[in-house]
Design a protein around this nucleic acid. Sequence first.
RNA 1: GCGGGCGUGGUGAAAUUGGUAGACACGCUAGACUUAGGAUCUAGUGCCUUGCGGUAUGGGGGUUCGAGUCCCUCCGCCCGCACCA
Length: 991
Amino acid sequence: MEYKFNDIEQKWKQIWKDTNVYRVSNDSTKPKCYVLDMFPYPSGAGLHVGHPLGYIASDIYARYKRLCGFNVLHPMGYDAFGLPAEQYAIETGQHPINTTEKNIARYREQLDNIGFCYDWEREVRTSDPKYYRWTQWIFLQLFHSWYDRKEGKAKNIQELIAIFEQEGNANHACPGDEQLSFNAAQWNAYTETEKRNALMQYRLAYLDYANVWWCEKLGTVLANDEVVNGVSERGGFPVEKKKMRQWFLRITEYADRLLQSLDNLEWTDAMKEMQRNWIGKSMGAEIDFSIKDSVHQIKVFTTRPDTIFGVDFMVLAPEHEWVDAIATQEQQDAIAQYKKYVQSRSERERLAEVKQVSGCFTGAYAVHPLTGNEIPIWISEYVLAGYGTGAIMAVPSGDCRDHAFAKHFNIPITNIFGEQYTGDEAYESKEGTIENSGFISGIEIKKAAEIIINTLAENGLGKPKVNFKLRDAGFSRQRYWGEPFPIVYQNNIPYALDEIEGGETLPVELPMVESFKPSATGEGPLSLQTDWLQTPKGTRETNTMPGYAGSSWYFLRFMDPHNDAEFANRKVTDYWNQVDVYIGGTEHAVGHLLYSRFWTKVLFDLGHLGFEEPFKKLINQGMITAFSYFHLQEFTADAVSYRHELDKDDDSNKNGVVITAEIRPLITSSDATDVPDEVSTNKSILNKENIKPLSFSKTNNVRKVRIKDVGKFVEANGRIFKDKFEAYLNESEIRRKEYENILGINWEKTDDGREFIQLSVENEKMSKSKYNVVNPDDIVAQYGADTFRMYEMFLGPIDVSKPWDTKGIEGVHRFLKKLWRLYFDEQKGFIATDEKATDAELRVLHKTIKKIKEDIERFTLNTSVSQFMICVNELATLNCHKREILEPLAIIIAPFAPHLAEELWHAFGNLSSVLDATFANANEQYLVENSKLYPVAVNGKTRIELEFPLDAEQSFIEQTVLNHETIQKWLEGKQPKKIIFVKGKMINVVI
RNA sequence: GCGGGCGUGGUGAAAUUGGUAGACACGCUAGACUUAGGAUCUAGUGCCUUGCGGUAUGGGGGUUCGAGUCCCUCCGCCCGCACCA
């Protein structure tokens, strides 16, 4: 009987499905284990072999834990709301509901193909009203909550109202508006509108105004990174900032807790560090500067209060609220002009350009709080309104940006670092002493900061201040395909649906629409649904929630996915508790992972959960890249390269378009204006309108031509032989047309005269546009799911990016066939015997059990596969076909190759599933060796190997070693200085 | 610029606490079996050398009986953040 993986896998998939083996109960006496993958966004492209890497690892872990007696929750679902589906809808008119449904079906098929042990009865989709009903509900919890800074936790807003009624807000500073102050009497006299406006400044989900990028031509609002050089990335159309009323989540109140509790998580340091950077806690001081001839005071935040005597000027963010108020008459025009310039710049650009200094003098002067000196006030784009106070005290001798600014605008620089400051560049180190600084001259920098803060505080001029880079999270999208807000407006005041008497119940469902285009004003498509918009109780919110809304809590819904009464039952969430192991890519380091942590903490504070960190252990999976092949074409004449205007972001076109036979003569003709009418590229047809010459140079005369899908014809060293290349061209007409010109040139010859060309090989991310995508379905069809699973693990460590090499999979497939042959003979069928196993055989088995256990727990699954190979190789050498060895082996390989394992398990006559077998413990008794083959080194270099019993006397070993002829030879008659003997490890003779 | 990570054969990689560098595979070479091989098996395979042996974990230096592993320094690559006050 040969290993018919297709039959075996089909059979067991069906049986497992019929018998519901993957169903998980919330009611169990077993210890729990929650193993979760980051759920995918179901894109139209389907899965490629890179996606399942993490899924396979978690599947192995989940299956292993089940074999170890745990009740394992291992669910899967879809992050189904999102922009691509909506973009596709705008382009094709197909409703996202339909395309999403279709994509999910395709994903499911691909996932099933690989044999994951998901309990599909728990599947969730964020776009399902039954799911987003609870996303809306959680949003309302945020809306109904405020953060009590005194107790450091979120509470119901009703408690705050009660406090206001008693004592006003004196004891609870307002996070949204620091100036806001009222006593009980004032509060009680407030109108409904005034009260709700004040409360809005406290709510964890609140409304505020913020700028968005509006692109008239595309008819849509763009994200920050979709705007490049002041125009839209797609199409290059003009964009403008537009102020819109939007929802925000007050995550900043949780900044410290999000930072603190990172310490207890089993995440990689890199991941924690990214979150720390994002939260960006910095400690410094807030200092008040009064303005000459003005009632205004400007607060400045600085992390270097010690440099206060070096302040030579002040810089405000151009958006700072008092810029116009303090600017002198003469400077108003210049200021207005500069502000206009800044308006056109995206934040990204403002922060990205380091070299270019720009700014504008306001004409106003601040008064130094300690010296009384007058300090000119400037505005510049390098100061951001959203960070700190939107104003800085500039110390050119101590800060490189301030230094560049001072040099550029010829502002005199005060040196407060003595000889440490050279005059050429700022002294930014925190080592050394402060000079030329009044009462802190000669004092160490670190000490000086403390003194200044105390002095300022004593005189009411400033105070110590902790600042966070983290900003409140924008929670509105002017889009259709997302969760609608459970909010209606009455007289322009937002009300939660659950506080309106007779209001509708959740969910607020997305209305079906025909058009997905936003309104002319930039409001989302929902604003055009007039029927839906107006309700008897008010006007609906037209924005929808962003992508991270649904994904911030989905791990909770998996615990209790069909609950109609609550987002998840507390008893159930108490049982499943934190996700024990969470696997996914690093791209979610600060988005999803930070928001989930935030939501979990809020739900915990409000008493809906018993834990406040969602993901105990986090494993990051690396990318699987693919080889891409290029033909390097040299041109002796001047060459011109063409670039598709719409392809600017595509790296593959960095060096110009694919050059076809027809246009090659034109390109080498060295006439830059001689652009062909039509050029076929690897992506699309170009014509005169959308290509333009990019470069025209003699030096840059190598063109990289991507050869699509050529992988299977290319040798490992990147060579492709002529016959193979012909075969490749013969696969399609289009190819022949595109690459035929290569046949005519550059053939090199091997020693035996075979003609080849050397292609350049590059490692790239798999993507449809690079023609290097490998579909797992194809691999599964050819080798089976078990081989595929093991090969993905065999490739290397889970967290490292590595290339997919289809050739390498043969080795793993051969291994499974070899394993099979331990159990089955081609002629005789099942050949396992009941013979007693030998010590050698038992040692092989238990060595393997031990290694596999350790590996799975450490997620070093690549070495597990190696160990299985070693095990099978050794058992084959021992000619072992004994049940005593092979039955436990089938169990321990079950997490890796579940279908094969189930088949082998049943061959022994077992009736239950191998899923419910028991993972054996390694028996140390079989692992004990009584002798060791010692490496014997002379001066650290191994020369011979000698076997000694483990209990041998050291003196005996030393004598034997010294008497050995090879060692004698190295000793050359001398006495050794020393003999190092490490029991069980090695022997080193030092001469 | 700052922070983090990494660098080992032709390729993917292993070496868990400082103890035989290259396990396990891919590829390649030779051979066996075979009508055939894209099946299976055997042997070999870092580099230099006929051999003895030498040499080798990005480069240089150090600690140690012993360094891929620890320390210093330089180079290269990847990731994150970036006029962040």
